[in-house]
Design a protein around this nucleic acid. Sequence first.
DNA 1: ATAGGGTTAG
Length: 539
Amino acid sequence: MHSSSPQTHHLHLLTPFEPNSKQKKTQFGYIRTKTHHGDISTYNSILLQLTKEKYDPILKSISLYQELLCSGISPNTFTFPCLLKLLANKCALAEGKLIHAHIIKLGLEYDAYIRNNLIRFYGQCGDISIASKLFDIFPDRDIVSWTILMSGYSKVGMFRESIKLFIQMMELNLEVDAVTVVSALSACSRLGDLKLGKKLHRYIKIRNVNLDVYAWNALVDMYAKCGDITCAYDLFKQMPERNIVTWNSMISGFVHAGEFIRALSVFRKMQNKGIDPDHTTLVSVLSACTNLGALEMGRWVHLYMLRMGFKPEGVLGNALVDMYAKCGVIDHAVQVFEGMMKRDVFTFSCLIIGFAMHGKAEKAMDLFSEMLTAGIEPNEVTFVGVLTACSHAGLVKEGLLQFDNMLKIYGLNPDVRHYGCVVDMLGRAGLLGKAEEFVKEMPIEPDSSIWGSLLAACKMHGNVEMGERVMQRALEMPSKEDGDYILMSNLYAFSNRHNDSIQVRKEMRRNKVRKIPGCSSIEIDGIVYEFRAGNKLSL
DNA sequence: ATAGGGTTAG
């Protein structure tokens, strides 16, 4: 692993700094001392301007700094925050360390702005240990230092550490503001720890923190991601001001909670308020459509995108491919896929799963090869698609090989989904003994879906003896599946053991296992309605 | 003149 940044070639520009020398030596020899931009404040304002540019003007900023040094001008406390911000955005760790040395040499390391920017710089560049060390030795850390370090931890996925800092602030009774609160809450969202989230919320109320729309959004998101969608929606309704992110958080919150109809209903409310959806909104809306099989609504999103000039690229493109693939219009999924400029592991995985689900195993496997050829590393989900394809096509040998390759070649640990695919594959192929053996030797605890697959295989091949054995194991599971009873009952019936068949049905009723009420959705004129068996149509 | 925050797919 090489840790050298791609900007290393600029390093020679940053020669050892001597503020008062008239000439600067670089690898290219002596550079004339000449002021191009006047005094230090002019340089600073140009640097500040650069931090606001859309593109990454790292070359420009470094050469500007270089020019400044060569002009014999001393950088001051206003120079470095801008410079560090520019370098942080590019993760130019090596250059930043040099700048850090310059800062120390100039004795500017005790400036609060510079210290905080250094912490931020190291945090952004992924060297969180340096960031935290700086924070620790910083005598005058303020609320900004705390927040910056919290963000640094979150950036590298150390959410517990991030929240630990907030708790420390609570214990020290330090002032917290809306920005600090956002950092803590978003770390909590990522952890999905509702208990912790509630604790933070209580503290926010006790301290009477003045919440702005960012903080409200973070609260809504925290409750949604931690599984309390009711509370999230209550806060959403009572918050004083909403923006597009608020709506997006609420829609994605409902999607996350599996409440797809309510997600679309919030989307409709958003439109009624005249708020135009952005990319993020459409991704969540497409996800809801995918899960509902709401093809017409999905098509509408696609048309809307075309009308508004939203390119089907990146996350949005992937969501569109997924929607078409799962809603049964595989040809459109392929069209969108082919129209995309860049395809990543998501794009490929969506289409591979799509092909596999449509019984097009060969296409799925071809696409998998194409993906590998393109140098895209597969992940766990890719293999769910690959194994599903093998299972449906009866490609047992290939499937077992791919299952083996997961860990051997790609270092991916198979989870219960993958084991389920293999059981399904062996079972469908009639290799019941092998399937049972495979389940016995699984390094993870089989769940009810595994037993279900095995039982389905027994039913398919009329193996009562094994079916009884499997059923026994299925009944040991904490959640009894109605499908298992029905499979077993049908297996008996198929084998002319009608009394046993009736017994199983009776036992199912005795154990109060009911077929889960059919819950589905339909679209009428592109409006998605949900209905449950026995219930009235409800929006 | 300079520093900290939110939403997105399989």
